[in-house]
Design a protein around this nucleic acid. Sequence first.
DNA 1: GCCGTTTTCGGCCCGACTGTTTTCAGTCG
Length: 573
Amino acid sequence: MQNASVAQMFDEIADCLEIAGENPFKIRAYRRAAEAVATFAEPIEDAAENGMLRSIEGLGEATAAKVQEFLATGKVRFLEKLREEYPPTLLELLRVPNLGPKRIAQLYRERGISSIELLKEALDADQLQGIAGFGPKTLSNLKSGLERLAEVSQRLPLSDALRLVGDIQSTLKRCDAIQELEVAGSLRRGADTVGDINLLAQTDDAAAVITFFTQMSLVLSIGECSHEAASVTVRPGVTVRLFCAPQSTFGAALLFATGSAAHLQGVRNRAAALDVELSPSGFKKGTVELAAQSESEVYAALEVPYIVPELREGRGEWEAAFEAVLPTLIETSDLLGDLHSHSTWSDGSVSIRQMALAMRERGYRYFAVTDHSKALAMANGLNAARLREQAIEIALVQQEFPDIKILRGIECDILRDGSLDLDDEILHELDIVVASVHSAFNLEEAAQTERMIKAISHPAVDIVAHPTGRILGGRPGYRVDVSALIEAARETHTALEINSSERLDLDDINARRARDRDVLLAIDSDAHSTRMLPNVALGVLTARRAWCSKRHVLNAKPVDELMAWLQRPQSQA
DNA sequence: GCCGTTTTCGGCCCGACTGTTTTCAGTCG
Protein backbone atom coordinates (compact mmCIF):
# COMPACT_ATOMS: atom_id res chain seq x y z
CA MET A 1 0.00 0.00 0.00
CA GLN A 2 1.48 3.32 -1.02
CA ASN A 3 -1.43 5.66 -0.33
CA ALA A 4 0.50 7.75 2.18
CA SER A 5 3.48 8.17 -0.14
CA VAL A 6 1.31 9.13 -3.09
CA ALA A 7 -0.61 11.62 -0.96
CA GLN A 8 2.68 13.09 0.25
CA MET A 9 3.80 13.48 -3.35
CA PHE A 10 0.68 15.51 -4.24
CA ASP A 11 1.05 17.68 -1.15
CA GLU A 12 4.64 18.45 -2.06
CA ILE A 13 3.57 19.46 -5.55
CA ALA A 14 0.92 21.71 -4.03
CA ASP A 15 3.51 23.30 -1.71
CA CYS A 16 5.82 24.04 -4.64
CA LEU A 17 3.02 25.51 -6.70
CA GLU A 18 1.99 27.77 -3.83
CA ILE A 19 5.43 29.32 -3.68
CA ALA A 20 5.47 29.48 -7.46
CA GLY A 21 2.31 31.59 -7.22
CA GLU A 22 0.32 29.20 -9.38
CA ASN A 23 -3.43 29.35 -9.87
CA PRO A 24 -4.95 28.72 -6.41
CA PHE A 25 -7.54 26.38 -7.86
CA LYS A 26 -4.87 24.21 -9.39
CA ILE A 27 -3.15 24.06 -6.01
CA ARG A 28 -6.39 23.08 -4.37
CA ALA A 29 -6.89 20.37 -6.95
CA TYR A 30 -3.56 18.83 -5.90
CA ARG A 31 -4.51 19.12 -2.23
CA ARG A 32 -7.79 17.41 -2.96
CA ALA A 33 -5.97 14.66 -4.84
CA ALA A 34 -3.70 14.17 -1.81
CA GLU A 35 -6.67 13.96 0.53
CA ALA A 36 -8.53 11.62 -1.81
CA VAL A 37 -5.63 9.18 -1.99
CA ALA A 38 -4.80 9.40 1.72
CA THR A 39 -8.36 8.58 2.72
CA PHE A 40 -8.95 5.99 0.01
CA ALA A 41 -9.82 2.84 1.90
CA GLU A 42 -7.98 0.37 -0.32
CA PRO A 43 -4.39 0.24 -1.59
CA ILE A 44 -4.11 2.83 -4.34
CA GLU A 45 -2.04 0.39 -6.41
CA ASP A 46 -5.06 -1.92 -6.60
CA ALA A 47 -7.18 0.91 -7.96
CA ALA A 48 -4.41 1.72 -10.44
CA GLU A 49 -4.17 -1.86 -11.57
CA ASN A 50 -7.92 -2.13 -12.09
CA GLY A 51 -8.07 1.13 -14.00
CA MET A 52 -10.24 2.65 -11.27
CA LEU A 53 -8.15 5.73 -10.46
CA ARG A 54 -10.39 8.11 -12.40
CA SER A 55 -13.42 6.95 -10.49
CA ILE A 56 -11.93 8.31 -7.27
CA GLU A 57 -13.43 11.72 -6.67
CA GLY A 58 -10.68 14.32 -6.80
CA LEU A 59 -8.45 12.45 -9.20
CA GLY A 60 -8.59 13.54 -12.84
CA GLU A 61 -6.61 12.89 -15.94
CA ALA A 62 -3.39 14.62 -14.88
CA THR A 63 -3.33 13.42 -11.26
CA ALA A 64 -4.23 9.85 -12.16
CA ALA A 65 -1.34 9.80 -14.65
CA LYS A 66 0.99 11.00 -11.89
CA VAL A 67 -0.19 8.21 -9.61
CA GLN A 68 0.60 5.70 -12.36
CA GLU A 69 4.01 7.22 -12.95
CA PHE A 70 4.80 7.22 -9.23
CA LEU A 71 3.77 3.60 -8.80
CA ALA A 72 5.75 2.50 -11.84
CA THR A 73 8.96 4.47 -11.27
CA GLY A 74 8.91 5.65 -7.66
CA LYS A 75 9.04 9.28 -8.78
CA VAL A 76 7.20 11.88 -10.79
CA ARG A 77 9.10 13.96 -13.34
CA PHE A 78 6.87 16.99 -12.78
CA LEU A 79 7.78 17.01 -9.08
CA GLU A 80 11.46 16.30 -9.74
CA LYS A 81 11.56 19.40 -11.90
CA LEU A 82 9.79 21.46 -9.25
CA ARG A 83 12.23 20.27 -6.62
CA GLU A 84 15.14 21.73 -8.60
CA GLU A 85 13.59 25.15 -8.13
CA TYR A 86 11.92 24.70 -4.74
CA PRO A 87 14.00 22.53 -2.40
CA PRO A 88 12.23 20.67 0.44
CA THR A 89 13.76 22.91 3.12
CA LEU A 90 12.15 25.90 1.43
CA LEU A 91 8.74 24.25 1.62
CA GLU A 92 9.11 23.90 5.37
CA LEU A 93 8.87 27.68 5.59
CA LEU A 94 5.18 27.31 4.74
CA ARG A 95 4.67 26.08 8.28
CA VAL A 96 5.87 29.33 9.84
CA PRO A 97 2.87 31.31 11.12
CA ASN A 98 2.53 34.79 9.60
CA LEU A 99 4.62 33.73 6.62
CA GLY A 100 2.90 32.71 3.42
CA PRO A 101 3.97 31.67 -0.07
CA LYS A 102 4.36 35.19 -1.44
CA ARG A 103 6.79 36.34 1.20
CA ILE A 104 8.64 33.03 1.13
CA ALA A 105 9.20 33.48 -2.60
CA GLN A 106 10.34 37.05 -2.01
CA LEU A 107 12.78 36.11 0.77
CA TYR A 108 14.15 33.28 -1.35
CA ARG A 109 14.56 35.46 -4.43
CA GLU A 110 16.02 38.51 -2.76
CA ARG A 111 18.00 37.02 0.13
CA GLY A 112 18.43 33.35 -0.68
CA ILE A 113 16.50 32.29 2.44
CA SER A 114 15.75 28.65 1.73
CA SER A 115 15.13 27.14 5.15
CA ILE A 116 13.70 27.81 8.60
CA GLU A 117 17.26 27.79 9.93
CA LEU A 118 18.40 30.51 7.51
CA LEU A 119 15.32 32.59 8.29
CA LYS A 120 16.05 32.39 11.99
CA GLU A 121 19.68 33.40 11.46
CA ALA A 122 18.77 36.31 9.21
CA LEU A 123 16.18 37.57 11.69
CA ASP A 124 18.52 37.27 14.65
CA ALA A 125 21.24 39.11 12.76
CA ASP A 126 18.83 41.86 11.65
CA GLN A 127 19.60 41.18 8.02
CA LEU A 128 16.09 41.50 6.67
CA GLN A 129 15.68 45.26 6.84
CA GLY A 130 15.09 47.08 3.63
CA ILE A 131 13.14 44.41 1.79
CA ALA A 132 10.05 45.97 0.27
CA GLY A 133 7.01 45.19 2.37
CA PHE A 134 9.00 43.97 5.37
CA GLY A 135 8.51 46.64 8.02
CA PRO A 136 9.47 46.35 11.69
CA LYS A 137 6.11 44.89 12.66
CA THR A 138 6.32 42.19 10.02
CA LEU A 139 9.79 41.22 11.15
CA SER A 140 8.69 40.93 14.77
CA ASN A 141 5.67 38.90 13.64
CA LEU A 142 8.01 36.55 11.84
CA LYS A 143 10.03 36.14 15.01
CA SER A 144 6.93 35.30 17.02
CA GLY A 145 5.84 33.01 14.20
CA LEU A 146 9.07 31.05 14.57
CA GLU A 147 8.52 30.87 18.32
CA ARG A 148 5.02 29.52 17.82
CA LEU A 149 6.28 26.99 15.32
CA ALA A 150 8.75 25.75 17.90
CA GLU A 151 5.79 25.05 20.20
CA VAL A 152 4.23 22.75 17.62
CA SER A 153 5.39 19.24 18.06
CA GLN A 154 7.81 18.08 15.40
CA ARG A 155 6.41 14.62 15.97
CA LEU A 156 4.23 12.88 13.42
CA PRO A 157 0.48 13.26 14.01
CA LEU A 158 -1.25 9.98 14.83
CA SER A 159 -3.34 9.92 11.65
CA ASP A 160 -0.25 10.41 9.45
CA ALA A 161 1.66 7.78 11.41
CA LEU A 162 -1.17 5.27 11.00
CA ARG A 163 -1.29 5.83 7.26
CA LEU A 164 2.45 5.51 6.95
CA VAL A 165 2.56 2.36 9.03
CA GLY A 166 -0.19 0.95 6.82
CA ASP A 167 2.11 1.39 3.82
CA ILE A 168 4.99 -0.28 5.68
CA GLN A 169 2.90 -3.17 6.97
CA SER A 170 1.57 -4.03 3.56
CA THR A 171 5.12 -4.04 2.20
CA LEU A 172 6.37 -6.26 5.02
CA LYS A 173 3.51 -8.66 4.35
CA ARG A 174 5.48 -9.86 1.36
CA CYS A 175 8.35 -10.97 3.57
CA ASP A 176 7.96 -14.73 4.06
CA ALA A 177 10.25 -14.84 7.09
CA ILE A 178 7.76 -12.75 9.12
CA GLN A 179 5.20 -14.91 10.94
CA GLU A 180 3.47 -12.04 12.67
CA LEU A 181 3.90 -8.29 12.68
CA GLU A 182 2.78 -5.94 15.45
CA VAL A 183 2.90 -2.18 15.71
CA ALA A 184 4.55 -1.22 18.99
CA GLY A 185 5.73 1.98 20.67
CA SER A 186 3.68 5.12 21.21
CA LEU A 187 1.70 4.38 18.06
CA ARG A 188 0.34 1.20 19.63
CA ARG A 189 -0.47 3.15 22.76
CA GLY A 190 -2.52 5.54 20.62
CA ALA A 191 -0.53 8.66 21.46
CA ASP A 192 -1.68 11.76 19.56
CA THR A 193 1.74 12.18 17.98
CA VAL A 194 4.62 9.78 17.60
CA GLY A 195 8.36 10.38 17.41
CA ASP A 196 9.46 7.10 15.87
CA ILE A 197 7.50 4.19 14.51
CA ASN A 198 8.33 0.90 16.22
CA LEU A 199 7.40 -2.50 14.84
CA LEU A 200 7.94 -6.00 16.13
CA ALA A 201 8.22 -9.01 13.85
CA GLN A 202 7.85 -12.59 14.96
CA THR A 203 10.40 -14.65 13.10
CA ASP A 204 12.92 -17.45 13.27
CA ASP A 205 15.10 -15.76 10.69
CA ALA A 206 15.86 -12.24 11.88
CA ALA A 207 18.63 -11.76 9.33
CA ALA A 208 16.24 -12.32 6.42
CA VAL A 209 13.68 -9.95 7.95
CA ILE A 210 16.21 -7.20 8.49
CA THR A 211 17.54 -7.54 4.96
CA PHE A 212 14.02 -7.30 3.56
CA PHE A 213 13.18 -4.37 5.82
CA THR A 214 16.20 -2.28 4.95
CA GLN A 215 15.69 -2.87 1.23
CA MET A 216 12.07 -1.67 1.08
CA SER A 217 11.50 0.89 -1.65
CA LEU A 218 10.12 3.29 0.99
CA VAL A 219 13.50 3.50 2.73
CA LEU A 220 15.42 6.76 2.34
CA SER A 221 18.38 5.84 4.52
CA ILE A 222 19.46 3.05 6.84
CA GLY A 223 20.36 3.76 10.45
CA GLU A 224 21.60 1.45 13.18
CA CYS A 225 21.35 -2.27 12.58
CA SER A 226 22.01 -5.27 14.78
CA HIS A 227 21.16 -8.96 14.59
CA GLU A 228 17.65 -8.44 16.00
CA ALA A 229 16.79 -4.88 15.07
CA ALA A 230 17.20 -2.24 12.40
CA SER A 231 16.15 1.35 11.94
CA VAL A 232 15.55 3.24 8.74
CA THR A 233 14.17 6.62 7.76
CA VAL A 234 11.24 6.62 5.38
CA ARG A 235 10.63 10.35 5.38
CA PRO A 236 12.81 13.19 6.53
CA GLY A 237 12.75 13.01 10.33
CA VAL A 238 10.70 9.82 10.54
CA THR A 239 12.56 6.80 11.86
CA VAL A 240 11.06 3.33 11.64
CA ARG A 241 12.53 0.72 13.92
CA LEU A 242 11.91 -2.97 13.47
CA PHE A 243 12.62 -5.45 16.24
CA CYS A 244 12.64 -9.21 15.78
CA ALA A 245 11.71 -11.87 18.31
CA PRO A 246 11.02 -15.60 18.16
CA GLN A 247 7.57 -16.91 19.02
CA SER A 248 8.63 -18.15 22.46
CA THR A 249 9.39 -14.65 23.79
CA PHE A 250 7.23 -12.54 21.50
CA GLY A 251 5.00 -11.30 24.35
CA ALA A 252 7.89 -10.05 26.44
CA ALA A 253 9.46 -8.36 23.42
CA LEU A 254 6.16 -6.71 22.52
CA LEU A 255 5.70 -5.41 26.04
CA PHE A 256 9.13 -3.79 26.00
CA ALA A 257 8.79 -2.46 22.47
CA THR A 258 5.45 -0.88 23.38
CA GLY A 259 6.54 1.01 26.50
CA SER A 260 6.05 3.58 27.81
CA ALA A 261 9.18 4.11 29.85
CA ALA A 262 7.01 5.00 32.84
CA HIS A 263 4.92 1.86 32.45
CA LEU A 264 7.99 -0.33 32.05
CA GLN A 265 9.33 1.07 35.29
CA GLY A 266 6.19 -0.36 36.88
CA VAL A 267 6.88 -3.66 35.15
CA ARG A 268 10.37 -3.74 36.60
CA ASN A 269 9.16 -2.83 40.07
CA ARG A 270 6.57 -5.55 39.95
CA ALA A 271 9.04 -8.12 38.63
CA ALA A 272 11.49 -7.24 41.41
CA ALA A 273 8.75 -7.58 44.03
CA LEU A 274 7.91 -11.04 42.71
CA ASP A 275 11.56 -11.93 42.38
CA VAL A 276 11.42 -12.62 38.67
CA GLU A 277 13.94 -11.60 36.06
CA LEU A 278 12.35 -9.90 33.11
CA SER A 279 13.80 -8.65 29.82
CA PRO A 280 12.70 -8.40 26.19
CA SER A 281 14.17 -11.83 25.61
CA GLY A 282 11.91 -13.54 28.11
CA PHE A 283 11.79 -13.95 31.82
CA LYS A 284 12.38 -16.48 34.49
CA LYS A 285 11.92 -17.13 38.18
CA GLY A 286 15.06 -18.65 39.56
CA THR A 287 16.09 -21.08 36.85
CA VAL A 288 12.55 -21.69 35.58
CA GLU A 289 11.68 -20.07 32.26
CA LEU A 290 8.18 -18.55 32.35
CA ALA A 291 5.92 -18.42 29.34
CA ALA A 292 6.24 -15.16 27.42
CA GLN A 293 4.66 -15.89 24.07
CA SER A 294 1.92 -13.36 24.59
CA GLU A 295 1.62 -10.20 26.63
CA SER A 296 -1.29 -11.77 28.52
CA GLU A 297 1.06 -14.45 29.79
CA VAL A 298 3.54 -11.82 30.89
CA TYR A 299 0.95 -9.83 32.85
CA ALA A 300 -0.42 -13.05 34.32
CA ALA A 301 3.06 -13.94 35.51
CA LEU A 302 3.24 -10.49 37.11
CA GLU A 303 -0.03 -11.42 38.85
CA VAL A 304 -1.98 -8.46 37.49
CA PRO A 305 -4.79 -8.26 34.94
CA TYR A 306 -3.84 -7.49 31.34
CA ILE A 307 -3.29 -3.76 30.88
CA VAL A 308 -4.23 -2.45 27.43
CA PRO A 309 -1.59 -0.40 25.57
CA GLU A 310 -3.57 2.86 25.79
CA LEU A 311 -3.29 2.81 29.58
CA ARG A 312 0.43 2.14 29.68
CA GLU A 313 1.56 5.65 30.50
CA GLY A 314 2.36 5.40 34.19
CA ARG A 315 -0.77 7.38 35.03
CA GLY A 316 -2.15 5.12 37.72
CA GLU A 317 -2.66 1.93 35.74
CA TRP A 318 -0.55 -0.16 38.11
CA GLU A 319 -2.46 0.99 41.19
CA ALA A 320 -5.73 0.32 39.37
CA ALA A 321 -4.49 -3.10 38.29
CA PHE A 322 -3.51 -4.05 41.83
CA GLU A 323 -6.92 -2.99 43.10
CA ALA A 324 -8.64 -4.71 40.17
CA VAL A 325 -10.36 -1.47 39.18
CA LEU A 326 -8.99 -1.03 35.68
CA PRO A 327 -11.69 0.69 33.61
CA THR A 328 -13.64 -1.03 30.85
CA LEU A 329 -12.69 1.33 28.06
CA ILE A 330 -14.93 2.72 25.36
CA GLU A 331 -14.71 1.05 21.94
CA THR A 332 -15.49 2.44 18.53
CA SER A 333 -18.41 0.02 18.31
CA ASP A 334 -19.93 1.70 21.40
CA LEU A 335 -20.52 4.92 19.48
CA LEU A 336 -24.14 5.18 18.46
CA GLY A 337 -23.91 8.42 16.56
CA ASP A 338 -21.86 11.42 15.51
CA LEU A 339 -22.70 14.89 16.76
CA HIS A 340 -20.49 17.04 14.55
CA SER A 341 -20.60 16.80 10.76
CA HIS A 342 -20.78 19.09 7.76
CA SER A 343 -22.60 19.09 4.45
CA THR A 344 -22.54 21.04 1.21
CA TRP A 345 -24.67 23.66 2.95
CA SER A 346 -21.40 25.03 4.33
CA ASP A 347 -17.94 23.65 3.54
CA GLY A 348 -18.66 19.93 3.48
CA SER A 349 -18.29 18.04 0.23
CA VAL A 350 -21.33 15.76 0.49
CA SER A 351 -25.06 16.29 0.74
CA ILE A 352 -27.05 15.62 3.89
CA ARG A 353 -28.51 12.58 2.16
CA GLN A 354 -25.08 11.14 1.31
CA MET A 355 -23.97 11.78 4.86
CA ALA A 356 -27.07 10.06 6.23
CA LEU A 357 -26.38 7.03 4.07
CA ALA A 358 -22.78 6.79 5.27
CA MET A 359 -23.75 7.32 8.91
CA ARG A 360 -26.36 4.60 8.66
CA GLU A 361 -23.85 2.28 7.05
CA ARG A 362 -21.66 2.70 10.11
CA GLY A 363 -24.54 1.42 12.18
CA TYR A 364 -25.27 4.75 13.85
CA ARG A 365 -28.71 5.44 15.28
CA TYR A 366 -28.37 9.22 15.00
CA PHE A 367 -26.20 12.03 13.74
CA ALA A 368 -26.21 15.79 13.83
CA VAL A 369 -25.91 18.07 10.82
CA THR A 370 -23.77 20.88 12.20
CA ASP A 371 -22.73 23.19 9.40
CA HIS A 372 -20.82 26.38 10.08
CA SER A 373 -22.52 29.64 11.05
CA LYS A 374 -22.37 32.85 9.08
CA ALA A 375 -19.25 34.36 10.66
CA LEU A 376 -17.21 31.75 8.86
CA ALA A 377 -17.81 33.30 5.47
CA MET A 378 -15.06 31.29 3.85
CA ALA A 379 -16.94 28.14 4.75
CA ASN A 380 -20.21 29.55 3.41
CA GLY A 381 -21.59 29.62 6.95
CA LEU A 382 -25.36 29.64 7.49
CA ASN A 383 -27.55 32.46 8.76
CA ALA A 384 -30.97 31.89 10.33
CA ALA A 385 -32.80 32.00 7.01
CA ARG A 386 -30.59 29.38 5.40
CA LEU A 387 -30.77 27.23 8.54
CA ARG A 388 -34.56 27.22 8.17
CA GLU A 389 -34.25 26.28 4.52
CA GLN A 390 -31.91 23.50 5.53
CA ALA A 391 -34.53 22.21 7.97
CA ILE A 392 -36.77 21.39 5.01
CA GLU A 393 -34.07 19.28 3.40
CA ILE A 394 -33.27 17.55 6.69
CA ALA A 395 -36.96 16.69 7.11
CA LEU A 396 -37.04 15.19 3.62
CA VAL A 397 -33.94 13.08 4.21
CA GLN A 398 -35.31 12.07 7.60
CA GLN A 399 -38.43 10.77 5.88
CA GLU A 400 -36.32 8.66 3.61
CA PHE A 401 -34.24 7.24 6.47
CA PRO A 402 -36.60 6.58 9.37
CA ASP A 403 -34.11 4.27 11.07
CA ILE A 404 -31.54 6.97 11.80
CA LYS A 405 -32.39 10.12 13.73
CA ILE A 406 -31.06 13.24 12.04
CA LEU A 407 -30.53 16.09 14.46
CA ARG A 408 -30.79 19.64 13.24
CA GLY A 409 -27.73 21.41 14.51
CA ILE A 410 -25.13 24.09 13.94
CA GLU A 411 -21.45 24.55 14.60
CA CYS A 412 -21.93 28.07 15.84
CA ASP A 413 -18.95 30.43 15.94
CA ILE A 414 -18.05 31.87 19.31
CA LEU A 415 -17.36 35.51 18.51
CA ARG A 416 -14.49 37.51 19.95
CA ASP A 417 -16.59 38.72 22.89
CA GLY A 418 -17.93 35.27 23.74
CA SER A 419 -21.35 35.86 22.24
CA LEU A 420 -22.69 33.43 19.68
CA ASP A 421 -22.87 34.10 15.96
CA LEU A 422 -26.63 33.46 15.78
CA ASP A 423 -29.65 34.76 17.71
CA ASP A 424 -31.15 32.80 20.57
CA GLU A 425 -34.38 32.44 18.67
CA ILE A 426 -32.90 30.31 15.91
CA LEU A 427 -30.57 28.47 18.27
CA HIS A 428 -33.53 27.34 20.34
CA GLU A 429 -35.21 25.96 17.23
CA LEU A 430 -32.35 23.51 16.76
CA ASP A 431 -31.94 20.06 18.26
CA ILE A 432 -28.31 20.60 19.10
CA VAL A 433 -25.81 23.45 19.23
CA VAL A 434 -22.08 22.84 18.93
CA ALA A 435 -20.07 25.99 19.63
CA SER A 436 -16.47 26.64 18.67
CA VAL A 437 -13.77 29.24 18.13
CA HIS A 438 -12.48 30.02 14.63
CA SER A 439 -11.18 33.56 15.08
CA ALA A 440 -9.15 35.83 17.37
CA PHE A 441 -6.73 33.08 18.33
CA ASN A 442 -4.29 35.57 19.76
CA LEU A 443 -6.30 36.78 22.76
CA GLU A 444 -4.60 36.73 26.13
CA GLU A 445 -5.35 33.63 28.19
CA ALA A 446 -7.71 35.42 30.60
CA ALA A 447 -9.71 36.98 27.79
CA GLN A 448 -9.85 33.76 25.78
CA THR A 449 -10.97 31.81 28.84
CA GLU A 450 -13.64 34.36 29.69
CA ARG A 451 -14.84 34.36 26.09
CA MET A 452 -15.22 30.59 26.05
CA ILE A 453 -16.82 30.33 29.48
CA LYS A 454 -19.41 32.83 28.32
CA ALA A 455 -20.22 30.53 25.40
CA ILE A 456 -20.20 27.40 27.57
CA SER A 457 -22.69 29.12 29.87
CA HIS A 458 -25.07 30.00 27.06
CA PRO A 459 -28.19 27.90 27.65
CA ALA A 460 -28.42 26.85 24.01
CA VAL A 461 -24.91 25.40 23.84
CA ASP A 462 -24.69 21.61 24.18
CA ILE A 463 -21.12 20.85 23.12
CA VAL A 464 -17.99 22.93 22.79
CA ALA A 465 -16.02 21.62 19.85
CA HIS A 466 -12.21 21.41 19.62
CA PRO A 467 -11.86 23.40 22.85
CA THR A 468 -8.18 24.35 22.54
CA GLY A 469 -7.99 24.99 18.79
CA ARG A 470 -4.83 23.03 18.21
CA ILE A 471 -4.05 21.29 14.93
CA LEU A 472 -1.55 18.48 15.20
CA GLY A 473 1.54 19.31 13.20
CA GLY A 474 -0.11 22.59 12.26
CA ARG A 475 -0.47 25.01 15.13
CA PRO A 476 -0.55 25.01 18.90
CA GLY A 477 -3.86 25.77 20.55
CA TYR A 478 -4.75 29.26 21.65
CA ARG A 479 -3.93 30.29 25.20
CA VAL A 480 -6.81 29.17 27.39
CA ASP A 481 -7.27 27.80 30.92
CA VAL A 482 -8.68 24.36 30.13
CA SER A 483 -9.32 23.52 33.78
CA ALA A 484 -11.56 26.58 34.03
CA LEU A 485 -13.42 25.47 30.91
CA ILE A 486 -13.93 22.03 32.43
CA GLU A 487 -15.32 23.55 35.63
CA ALA A 488 -17.69 25.75 33.63
CA ALA A 489 -18.79 22.75 31.58
CA ARG A 490 -19.38 20.80 34.76
CA GLU A 491 -21.55 23.52 36.27
CA THR A 492 -23.59 24.10 33.12
CA HIS A 493 -23.87 20.45 32.06
CA THR A 494 -22.16 21.20 28.78
CA ALA A 495 -20.25 18.47 26.97
CA LEU A 496 -16.74 18.94 25.62
CA GLU A 497 -15.57 17.44 22.39
CA ILE A 498 -12.81 15.07 21.51
CA ASN A 499 -12.49 16.14 17.92
CA SER A 500 -11.25 13.23 15.86
CA SER A 501 -9.98 15.05 12.79
CA GLU A 502 -6.40 16.25 12.63
CA ARG A 503 -6.93 17.92 15.99
CA LEU A 504 -7.48 15.29 18.69
CA ASP A 505 -8.76 18.12 20.82
CA LEU A 506 -9.34 17.71 23.74
CA ASP A 507 -6.18 15.68 24.13
CA ASP A 508 -5.87 12.64 26.39
CA ILE A 509 -4.69 14.60 29.45
CA ASN A 510 -7.47 17.18 29.34
CA ALA A 511 -10.08 14.59 28.43
CA ARG A 512 -9.04 12.65 31.51
CA ARG A 513 -9.49 15.80 33.62
CA ALA A 514 -12.94 16.33 32.14
CA ARG A 515 -13.87 12.72 32.74
CA ASP A 516 -12.67 12.91 36.34
CA ARG A 517 -14.93 15.96 36.82
CA ASP A 518 -17.93 14.12 35.31
CA VAL A 519 -18.01 16.29 32.22
CA LEU A 520 -19.40 14.33 29.29
CA LEU A 521 -17.23 13.98 26.21
CA ALA A 522 -18.48 13.84 22.63
CA ILE A 523 -16.23 11.87 20.28
CA ASP A 524 -16.99 13.47 16.93
CA SER A 525 -15.64 13.11 13.42
CA ASP A 526 -16.12 16.76 12.36
CA ALA A 527 -16.48 15.06 8.98
CA HIS A 528 -16.47 17.28 5.91
CA SER A 529 -16.84 14.18 3.73
CA THR A 530 -18.04 10.65 4.34
CA ARG A 531 -14.44 9.48 4.07
CA MET A 532 -13.68 11.22 7.34
CA LEU A 533 -16.23 9.29 9.39
CA PRO A 534 -13.84 6.46 10.33
CA ASN A 535 -11.59 9.08 11.98
CA VAL A 536 -13.62 8.63 15.15
CA ALA A 537 -11.40 5.63 15.84
CA LEU A 538 -8.63 8.11 16.64
CA GLY A 539 -10.90 10.04 18.98
CA VAL A 540 -11.79 6.76 20.64
CA LEU A 541 -8.09 6.01 21.15
CA THR A 542 -7.72 9.41 22.79
CA ALA A 543 -10.74 8.72 25.00
CA ARG A 544 -9.30 5.35 25.96
CA ARG A 545 -6.05 7.03 26.94
CA ALA A 546 -8.24 9.31 29.06
CA TRP A 547 -9.63 6.25 30.87
CA CYS A 548 -13.10 6.79 29.42
CA SER A 549 -15.79 4.16 29.53
CA LYS A 550 -19.02 4.19 27.59
CA ARG A 551 -20.78 6.14 30.30
CA HIS A 552 -18.38 9.08 29.91
CA VAL A 553 -19.24 9.56 26.26
CA LEU A 554 -22.31 11.50 25.14
CA ASN A 555 -22.62 9.85 21.74
CA ALA A 556 -22.48 6.39 23.25
CA LYS A 557 -25.93 7.08 24.70
CA PRO A 558 -28.96 5.51 23.05
CA VAL A 559 -31.01 7.98 21.06
CA ASP A 560 -33.77 8.43 23.66
CA GLU A 561 -31.24 9.17 26.39
CA LEU A 562 -29.42 11.58 24.12
CA MET A 563 -32.65 13.43 23.30
CA ALA A 564 -33.50 13.59 27.00
CA TRP A 565 -30.02 14.94 27.76
CA LEU A 566 -30.45 17.65 25.14
CA GLN A 567 -33.53 18.82 27.08
CA ARG A 568 -31.59 19.00 30.37
CA PRO A 569 -31.87 22.07 32.54
CA GLN A 570 -28.67 24.10 32.36
CA SER A 571 -27.50 26.20 35.27
CA GLN A 572 -25.35 29.27 34.78
CA ALA A 573 -21.62 29.09 35.42
C1' DG B 1 -6.35 20.73 -12.28
C1' DC B 2 -11.17 19.04 -11.56
C1' DC B 3 -15.83 18.99 -12.71
C1' DG B 4 -20.66 18.84 -15.09
C1' DT B 5 -29.44 18.39 -13.66
C1' DT B 6 -24.89 25.49 -14.68
C1' DT B 7 -21.87 19.84 -18.91
C1' DT B 8 -16.34 20.42 -22.59
C1' DC B 9 -15.67 26.11 -20.76
C1' DG B 10 -15.80 28.70 -17.03
C1' DG B 11 -16.45 28.32 -12.66
C1' DC B 12 -14.17 26.88 -8.32
C1' DC B 13 -13.63 29.60 -0.88
C1' DC B 14 -14.96 34.80 1.08
C1' DG B 15 -14.04 38.52 4.09
C1' DA B 16 -11.56 40.41 8.11
C1' DC B 17 -7.41 41.88 9.80
C1' DT B 18 -2.91 43.73 9.69
C1' DG B 19 0.92 46.19 8.23
C1' DT B 20 2.74 48.91 4.93
C1' DT B 21 0.96 51.57 2.54
C1' DT B 22 -0.99 56.61 -0.09
C1' DT B 23 -4.73 52.57 -2.35
C1' DC B 24 -3.25 47.60 -1.47
C1' DA B 25 -0.98 42.97 -0.66
C1' DG B 26 -0.36 39.09 2.23
C1' DT B 27 -2.08 35.94 5.58
C1' DC B 28 -5.47 33.47 7.95
C1' DG B 29 -9.49 30.74 9.08
